[in-house]
Design a protein around this nucleic acid. Structure first.
Length: 576
RNA sequence: CGGGGUGUAGCUCAGCUUGGCUAGAGCGUCUGGUUUGGGACCAGAAGGCCGUAGGUUCGAAUCCUAUCACCCCGACCA
């Protein structure tokens, strides 16, 4: 490709609305331009990068035995109503009414469509396992698009869906996908971490996230000190803190007037005490059930953990429910005397570290103190669960090992879905024994744009991007430093020789000064640069420089090709 | 959706507090010349409905109101 014929609009100045390195560099290097909040046009070299990533994903998926297909971006709302996910996604799912008055959604993902295909076309255990995937645009009307391509509204996702006759088969494919993902991210030249994850909105059991550790990441990942265990913050388990000694005698509970002191902070301030002696009480609903969750005042309830403790989806109760339940304004709920009125009491371990604590009195403007867990409210029994339902914090341990917190960009996730979708959409098959069963499913996503962005986040320097060779827009850039006939002739000859050898070469044939070309080459981040200049050319040489290294090597024109091929080979093998 | 902020040349921004004649700078673009290995220099030029709509005023980029867009923090989220 000739630079002069390509649109690569690099800019010197940092665009005003870009904060993180990948966003700034993708704009500065001319990979893309914003069209509206959260939507971007990918310009020629930006698109080349995405296509390279897609091709890596495609080749590894195909090797794994999955089959590529394509599903529509516009899907009938009806399908989403059948699984109820139109409600789960809520306003994040964009939808519109067509001219016939039908509701359509802009697909944020494709479980519904693929499962309805399976419902129609997979009828026998003999057809499974079956793994179908697509690489396509997805649309999510995010509350807040940000960080350029890291959280955009429109993005490219590879989404795969597997169908199985039994759990064992799902486990096998899950494992194959897990290994395939490792290969994909390695080939993209990324240093990734695999963490255990909650399956969240997708439903199901068992999930791993592939994340790229870096400062700009939106996800918090938690690892044990030795790295043996890693999970995201939604999942990360913690060891129970040592429980308070039993059997001591404490004063009986006593009401204290706490006018208008609703939050933990306010109560602590008002009563001159530590959040560690407060029992935070939160009211949740699950359908018509009412659930009271308790956690020590200095911790946060983790909704995902609470949900798995309850076994059903949950939501915070509204003010009216709380008023009816406690007989008090929001902010004064407590477990004492309430256990008969609720369907389930979930107590985080941390509460049991409290010997005699403070909690809401279920009476507006009052709290009670000297509350002893086990004496003043039950800590065991029917409909009472004691467990780990809070967020991990930095001082926590798991399996006795200290926890370390990092940020990461989620680039892929694998889920075991089970029968959540096949059940609702009627994806059934006849098994060996002649009985009809639901297909068991897995699903596997990869964010294509996020791979590009996280590669930049982890590989850039003051001059620009430093692409790993497998996803670089070009492998080699030739910079003629000068415009003499000899320089141009030599550059053209190298360009032809390498292009003929199958190397992806960008020839900077612009009528610009050397400095401009060097700056652009570095900014765009092409892994290998060949400089053809008057001095070295006089000696029959050109210069080779690898972007991420500082040395410049002089190589005779005759040996350029062999050298370049060797360097490319080396760089490619490093990233595998 | 709550809080904060910004909209002025293709890009980055000044001017607005305290209204005043022709609205500026740097970068980029175009022309000519000198340059030519790390974003050159000189001379000249083009480029603006000051986000949009109302209002106040003799007069509005500047003050007021509304509205739209974008950014940041929060809540939410593969």
């Amino acid at each position: 490709m000739r630079y002069s014929k390509t649109l690569i609009p690099t800019v010197k100045e940092v665009p005003a609305d870009a904060e993180i390195p990948s966003h700034q560099l993708m704009l500065r290097a001319g990979l893309m331009r914003k069209v509206a909040s959260g939507t971007y046009t990918y310009l020629p070299i930006g698109w080349r990068i995405l296509m390279k990533i897609m091709n890596i994903v495609r080749s590894e998926m195909n090797k794994s035995g999955a089959q590529e297909m394509l599903m529509p971006s516009v899907q009938p709302m009806e399908l989403w109503q059948q699984t109820g996910r139109n409600v789960d996604y809520g306003p994040t799912m964009a939808h519109f009414t067509d001219r016939h008055g039908r509701e359509n959604v802009l697909a944020p993902t494709a479980e519904e469509v693929v499962t309805s295909i399976a419902a129609g076309e997979i009828n026998s255990y003999k057809q499974m396992p079956m793994n179908l995937y697509q690489i396509s645009f997805k649309f999510r009307d995010e509350f807040r698009p940000r960080f350029g391509v890291l959280r955009s509204r429109e993005f490219i996702m590879k989404d795969a869906y597997s169908f199985h006759a039994d759990e064992k088969s799902l486990d096998e494919t899950y494992k194959v996908m897990y290994e395939t993902y490792k290969k994909i991210f390695s080939r993209c030249g990324l240093k990734y971490a695999i963490v255990e994850a909650e399956s969240g909105e997708m439903g199901g059991s068992g999930s791993h996230q592939f994340t790229i550790p870096c400062e700009s990441g939106e996800d918090v990942i938690v690892q044990t000190e030795d790295g043996a265990y890693a999970a995201n913050i939604e999942k990360a388990p913690v060891d129970a803190l040592p429980a308070a000694a039993q059997g001591k005698v404490y004063k009986s509970i006593e009401e204290v007037h706490t006018p208008n002191q609703k939050t933990i902070g306010e109560v602590c301030e008002f009563l001159k005490t530590d959040a560690k002696s407060l029992i935070k009480s939160l009211v949740y609903k699950s359908g018509t059930d009412i659930i009271l969750a308790l956690v020590r005042g200095d911790f946060e309830i983790n909704p995902e953990k609470l949900r798995s403790a309850v076994g059903k989806s949950i939501e915070l109760a509204d003010e009216n429910t709380i008023r009816t339940l406690t007989g008090a304004e929001v902010g004064f709920a407590g477990p004492v005397g309430l256990t008969q009125k609720i369907n389930k009491l979930v107590i985080d371990h941390s509460v049991l570290t409290i010997e005699a604590g403070i909690t809401g009195a279920n009476k507006t403007d009052y709290h009670i103190k000297n509350v002893v867990p086990g004496r003043d409210f039950p800590i065991e029994g029917k409909n009472i669960v004691v467990g780990d339902v809070r967020n991990a914090v930095e001082s926590d341990t798991y399996q006795g090992k200290k926890l370390v917190f990092k940020r990461g960009i989620e680039v892929g996730q694998v889920f075991k879905l089970g029968t959540k979708y096949s059940g609702k959409l009627g994806a059934k098959f006849l098994d060996k024994d002649g009985t009809e069963k639901l297909c068991i499913m897995g699903c596997y996503g990869i964010g294509i744009n996020r791979i590009a962005a996280s590669a930049i986040e982890t590989m850039y320097d003051k001059d620009g991007i430093v692409w790993p060779i497998n996803i670089a827009p070009f492998e080699v850039i030739i910079v003629p430093a000068g415009n003499s006939e000899q320089i141009i002739a030599a550059s053209e000859s190298i360009y032809k020789e390498l292009t003929d050898a199958g190397v992806e070469v960008l020839l900077d044939d612009r009528d610009e000064r050397g400095g401009v070309k060097f700056k652009d080459a570095d900014l765009i981040g092409i892994p290998i640069r060949i400089t053809v200049g008057a001095k070295s050319l006089a000696e029959g040489n050109a210069e080779i420089k690898v972007r991420r290294e500082s040395e410049v090597t002089k190589v005779s024109l005759a040996e350029i090709k062999a050298n370049i091929l060797r360097i490319i080979d080396k760089l490619k093998n490093e990233s595998v």
